[in-house]
Simulated scan of single mutants.
Amino acid sequence: MPGKAERKDHPLSMRLPEADLAIIDRAARLRGRSRTDFVREAAMQAAEDVLLQTLPIRMSPEGFQSFVDVLSEPARPVSEMVEVLKRPAPWEASESNEP
């Protein structure tokens, strides 16, 4: 008799208010996903974000010194950002075009 196959998936159960389920279901439908797939993807993304925020950044002493040197330089304007910030906001532009 062959051995019993080991289960690779593990169930996760949680209690949620109906309002939360309604939002989750609506978002899942908009993405064309099942509730399970949607919740799993959202949970995995949140978990990865937390883990990435807590990972140490490793670099050589020389690399760290180069990093510190760049941060210590005076700030320089980025011409593209300066140009964007000079433009009127969309709501300001529409007010000036009114008759």
Results as ranks from 00 to 15, higher is better:
residue 55 L to T: 02
residue 42 A to R: 06
residue 58 R to P: 00
residue 72 S to N: 15
residue 19 A to Q: 04
residue 69 D to L: 14
residue 19 A to F: 00
residue 97 N to T: 13
residue 2 P to F: 04
residue 53 Q to W: 09
residue 96 S to F: 03
residue 42 A to V: 06
residue 93 A to L: 12
residue 50 V to K: 11
residue 17 P to E: 11
residue 25 D to R: 11
residue 56 P to Y: 02
residue 16 L to R: 00
residue 92 E to T: 08
residue 39 V to R: 06
residue 67 F to K: 08
residue 52 L to P: 00
residue 76 R to E: 11
residue 96 S to Y: 01
residue 93 A to Y: 04
residue 98 E to M: 12
residue 85 L to P: 02
residue 78 V to W: 13
residue 5 A to P: 13
residue 88 P to I: 00
residue 23 I to F: 02
residue 81 M to G: 05
residue 71 L to M: 14
residue 43 A to L: 11
residue 28 A to G: 10
residue 6 E to A: 04
residue 53 Q to Y: 07
residue 29 R to K: 15
residue 64 F to I: 11
residue 87 R to N: 09
residue 43 A to E: 01
residue 38 F to D: 05
residue 27 A to W: 06
residue 24 I to Y: 04
residue 79 S to Y: 13
residue 60 S to N: 03
residue 63 G to L: 08
residue 79 S to W: 13
residue 26 R to C: 05
residue 79 S to M: 13
residue 15 R to S: 02
residue 46 A to M: 10
residue 29 R to H: 10
residue 24 I to P: 03
residue 15 R to N: 00
residue 60 S to W: 02
residue 91 W to G: 02
residue 42 A to T: 06
residue 83 E to C: 02
residue 21 L to K: 03
residue 26 R to K: 14
residue 71 L to S: 12
residue 12 L to P: 01
residue 93 A to H: 07
residue 46 A to W: 10
residue 52 L to Y: 06
residue 10 H to S: 10
residue 93 A to Q: 09
residue 8 K to Q: 05
residue 59 M to P: 00
residue 97 N to Y: 05
residue 4 K to C: 04
residue 75 A to N: 08
residue 36 T to G: 08
residue 95 E to T: 01
residue 31 R to E: 15
residue 54 T to W: 09
residue 75 A to L: 10
residue 76 R to S: 11
residue 60 S to F: 06
residue 56 P to W: 01
residue 73 E to H: 09
residue 44 M to L: 03
residue 21 L to V: 10
residue 7 R to S: 06
residue 41 E to F: 05
residue 14 M to P: 03
residue 80 E to C: 11
residue 48 E to H: 10
residue 31 R to F: 11
residue 64 F to S: 14
residue 48 E to L: 12
residue 77 P to G: 07
residue 18 E to M: 04
residue 57 I to L: 07
residue 92 E to S: 09
residue 37 D to P: 01
residue 67 F to Y: 15
residue 43 A to Q: 05
residue 34 S to L: 09
residue 42 A to I: 03
